[in-house]
Amino acid sequence: MRILAATDFSTRSQRAVRRAGLMARDSDAELTLVHVVDDDQPTDLVALETREANRILGEQIGAVGELRGLPSRALVVAGDPFDGILRAAASTAADLVVMGAHRKQLLLDILVGTTIERVIRTGPFPVLMVNGEVEQPYRTALAPVDLSGTSVNAIRTGMALGLPGGARLALVHAFLPLAKGQMFYAGLSPDTIDGYVADERLRATKELTAFLDANGLDDHGQSVRIEEGAPFEVISAAVEQSKPDVLIIGTHGRTGIVKALLGSVTEEVLRSLDVDILAVPPIR
């Protein structure tokens, strides 16, 4: 396995470097640290910053505890941050890109997206966003399942990357009883509405069971929870209740201005939840 850890030398990206080192050590993976130098400046300054970045990366490889004694290499590229990271990931044939959570910039983030969101949105690589302190290997994981191939691919990718599986992996599925609101406004009794919701939960349970069975995910010992609500609300509540070490989620292939303005469940998760998140793109 090959891991690429991107760093801008901030505290946030330092966590990503440490997590990448821990994962590389546990999986005997090849590790590359990359820093992107802004090339929209005089050539002499680009060269100076490149030399300085190489020096700092070399120092980190020797000083960071999780990297000490681990075969690692430094890579400095010039360009826009998200494009430079994607080019570095492609050149190293990375199986995983590890990045720190980036500071949000309000309107700019809404219209363009943070660097990590742009890497996830435009690249073919699984991206691990590290939010928490790095103390030990991941012990527990949570994965939303929305009855799509994307969610199956995310779970399988997480397992292949060495994230917790079996009994340490919990699955969560959201269902929405669409007629519930109409029944309420129509003045139907609470018992009637509760009966309808119970029937919808049973239907969702049967659909999920059949889906997991068809995709070979029913025999790994993981726990499964089915909750009423919109996807983000259900995912957020499950994270708050179970406090997993890492959340595994697939991304859907929407592009263009619709995605930029409306976002997606994955982007809302990335922007709102304070948990390490593995975002896995669909198979292309």
Rank of each mutant, 00 (worst) to 15 (best):
A5P: 04
R12W: 11
A16V: 11
A16E: 05
R18D: 05
R18E: 14
M23Q: 02
A24K: 02
R25Y: 04
R25E: 03
S27G: 01
E30L: 03
T32C: 10
V34M: 02
H35V: 05
V37A: 12
Q41L: 09
P42G: 07
T43M: 10
T43D: 13
D44Y: 11
L45Q: 03
L45T: 07
V46S: 01
V46H: 01
V46G: 03
L48W: 07
T50G: 15
T50D: 12
R55P: 00
R55G: 01
R55N: 07
G62I: 11
V64Y: 08
V64F: 13
G65S: 14
L70R: 07
P71M: 08
L75Y: 00
A78T: 06
G84L: 08
G84H: 10
G84Q: 09
L86V: 07
L96A: 03
M99Q: 05
A101N: 04
H102W: 02
R103A: 14
K104N: 10
L107C: 04
V112T: 12
T114N: 12
I116L: 14
E117W: 13
E117F: 14
R118K: 15
V119M: 09
I120C: 06
G123V: 13
F125T: 10
V127D: 11
N131C: 07
G132S: 14
V134E: 00
E135T: 14
Q136A: 15
Y138C: 08
L142S: 06
P144F: 07
P144W: 00
G149I: 04
G149W: 02
G149L: 09
V152G: 05
N153F: 10
I155V: 15
L161K: 05
L161F: 07
P164K: 10
P164H: 11
R168E: 13
L169Q: 00
V172G: 05
A174C: 08
F175Q: 06
L176I: 15
A179L: 13
K180Q: 09
G181W: 05
Y185P: 00
A186W: 05
A186T: 03
L188A: 06
Y196K: 01
Y196R: 01
A198C: 01
A204N: 01
A210T: 07
A214Y: 00
L217N: 00
D218R: 08
D218I: 01
Q222R: 08
S223Q: 13
V224G: 02
I226T: 10
E227V: 07
E228P: 00
G229P: 01
E233P: 00
E233D: 15
V234I: 10
I235V: 14
I235M: 09
S236Q: 14
S236N: 11
A238W: 13
Q241Y: 09
K243Y: 01
V246N: 02
L247I: 07
L247S: 09
L247G: 05
I248D: 08
I249S: 09
I249M: 15
I249L: 15
T251V: 10
H252V: 11
R254Q: 07
R254D: 03
R254F: 02
I257T: 03
A260N: 04
L261D: 02
L261A: 12
G263D: 05
S264A: 04
T266V: 06
E268F: 02
V269F: 04
R271S: 00
D274T: 06
V275D: 06
D276P: 05
I277A: 07
A279P: 00
P281D: 13
P282T: 10
I283Q: 15
R284L: 13
